[in-house]
Every structure is written in structure tokens, then in C-alpha cells.
């Protein structure tokens, strides 16, 4: 067999015959994911103004420990375990977000959609279709250092738990002192939980586990039920990228909203 044409040219970063704006997509992804990461890190380091009346920022839920001395923190009865522990390193702020953000972070980092997004935008492997990627001595794909990506389903199990918790937070936000009411914040939190549920149950691993791993959908009643689950997950899966971005934006927005209300910068319109 001979050689493919311009093989050396292909190995140069950005080399392509494409004349369209192929760089626009990766650039937007780079900006979007970088912007979110910077904001989420900043918000996690604050450790305050994450709670207001019945609203709890999704960046901080569930509250395992609470430092009640922090401004805009939740009352101690909201803590799953108790008061802020003594063993916490002093160089870190007493922020409940540090204890939980790794789980949704791991789910998004190992997500099949985000993998495409950041492989293209951050490591140019490749930056776009039919565009030369970054030079790599020996390409190994996801067989070597990236082998951990195969554990995506374990991140999914945690993410499903977070969906339940965030729905609980959203429904709890409709009640203050036992009285039902509706606030802009409760609607924001309900939309947040719904978008995250759409993103999580449209996940490729979820789709596989619920039924995609079967070869026969009609063999018995259980398979039939799993086929229905797989069909529903497939509908969401077709919009996985959309849910990935909407839920990412909205979870950040939810934190911003609760933070601004807690700080007294904006007023939460509600029926209470």
C-alpha cells in the first residue's frame, strides 16, 4: 500500500483545506467551559450567601456540614451531619460546596458529550473534523491515561442521587414555615432540577444500563419494560448536548440568583 496524500501536513496542528469557520465551535466551547469552571471555583470558595429563606444554591446541596457563622449560610437543622468539623484544613474556607462539587464535576468530566467537547476545544485531538490535531508521540485514545473515563457510570450513580436531592430542594423551596407559596427562586430551582434530570437520564451510560445492553427487548416482561425505559432515554439522549449546556448554564444561574437574593442585591418576587 502506498501513502496517503499530504500525510505530513495532516500532522500539523490546524492544518486543513477547510475554509469555513471550523474554529468557532471549539472556541465557544473553550469559553463556555472555562467561564463556568472559573465561576464554579469562585462560588465554591465563597462559603457564604448560598442560602436564603427556603432557597438553597445547587452548588452547595446537600449540606453535609454547616458553618452557621458564615454570612448567608443555612440554619444548622439543614445539615445532614452537623456543625462544621474541627478537622477541616484552615487554609480552605468553610465551604460546603467543597464536599460535593466533585461528584457532579466527575459526572460532567467523564460524560460522553463533554469528552467530545473538551477533547476538541482544550486538547485539539482533533480541534475539528478534518483539521490537523495536536502532535502526539503515540496516540493511545482512551486506553492508557484516560482509562478512567470508563468509570462514567459510577459518576452517573452519584448524579442520579443529586437529581433526587435537587428535586427535594426545589419542592422544599415552595414552603416557608409550613406555608405553600411560589417565588421566582423556587421556579428557578425547579427548572434547575428538571434540566439536570433531563441531562442525567439522557446520559449514554444510563441509556445502556436501563436497556441498551440487552440484545432482545421482547424476550420477557422485564426486557419489555427496559425497552420502554431505553426508548425514553434515547429521546433524551438525542438532545444530550442541549441538556448538557442548558443544565450547566442554569445550575450556574441558580447559584447566582440565590447568592444575589441572599446578599440583598436583588429582590425575590414571591407570594409569601
Amino acid at each position: 500500500m502506498g501513502t496517503n496524500i499530504a500525510n505530513s501536513q495532516l500532522r500539523v496542528l490546524g492544518a486543513t483545506e477547510r475554509i469555513d469557520r471550523w474554529w468557532l465551535g471549539p472556541m465557544l466551547v473553550l469559553l463556555g467551559l472555562s467561564g463556568f469552571s472559573v465561576y464554579a471555583t469562585w462560588a465554591a470558595f465563597q462559603g457564604e450567601h448560598y442560602f436564603h429563606e427556603s432557597y438553597l444554591s445547587p452548588f452547595y446541596s446537600p449540606l453535609l456540614y454547616i458553618d452557621t457563622a458564615a454570612a448567608g449560610s443555612a440554619p444548622i437543622e439543614h445539615a445532614w451531619i452537623g456543625a462544621w468539623p474541627e478537622w477541616w484544613p484552615s487554609f480552605l474556607p468553610n465551604s460546603p460546596a467543597f464536599l460535593i462539587l466533585m461528584f457532579p464535576g466527575a459526572f460532567r468530566f467523564t460524560c460522553y458529550y463533554y469528552r467530545k467537547a473538551y477533547y476538541r476545544a482544550f486538547v485539539a485531538s482533533p480541534p475539528a473534523c478534518a483539521v490537523g490535531g495536536i502532535r502526539q508521540g503515540k496516540y493511545r485514545g482512551e486506553t492508557f491515561l484516560l482509562l478512567f473515563q470508563n468509570l462514567h457510570r459510577y459518576a452517573l450513580y452519584f448524579a442520579l442521587g443529586f437529581v433526587v436531592i435537587l428535586y427535594y430542594d426545589a419542592f422544599a423551596s415552595f414552603f416557608r414555615d409550613g406555608q405553600f407559596g411560589v417565588g421566582v427562586g423556587s421556579i428557578v430551582l425547579l427548572i434547575n432540577a428538571t434540566l439536570l434530570a433531563g441531562y442525567t437520564t439522557g446520559c449514554h451510560s444510563f441509556r445502556h444500563l436501563i436497556g441498551g445492553g440487552l440484545d432482545c427487548f421482547s424476550c420477557n416482561t422485564v426486557c419489555d419494560v427496559r425497552h420502554k425505559g431505553w426508548s425514553l432515554a434515547s429521546i433524551l439522549n438525542r438532545k444530550h448536548m442541549l441538556f448538557a449546556w442548558l443544565s450547566l448554564f442554569w445550575v450556574g444561574f441558580s447559584d447566582v440568583y440565590v447568592r444575589l437574593v441572599s446578599m440583598g442585591i436583588i429582590t425575590d418576587y414571591n407570594t409569601w
Binding site: 469528552r115 467530545k116 485531538s125 486506553t143 484516560l146 482509562l147
Partner: peptide, 21 residues
């Protein structure tokens, strides 16, 4: 494991087969 699912195969398929997903 060599595929890092960057989906270019799906983008170019003239039969619109969802190769990656």
C-alpha cells in the same frame, strides 16, 4: 478504546447514521 468519541464520523455520514451515539 482508541476512539475518543469526537463524533466526526457521525457528522460526515451521508446516511445520517448516528455512528457515535
Amino acid at each position: 478504546g482508541m476512539c475518543n468519541i469526537t463524533r466526526c464520523c457521525t457528522e460526515v455520514c451521508p446516511e445520517h447514521i448516528n455512528i457515535t451515539d
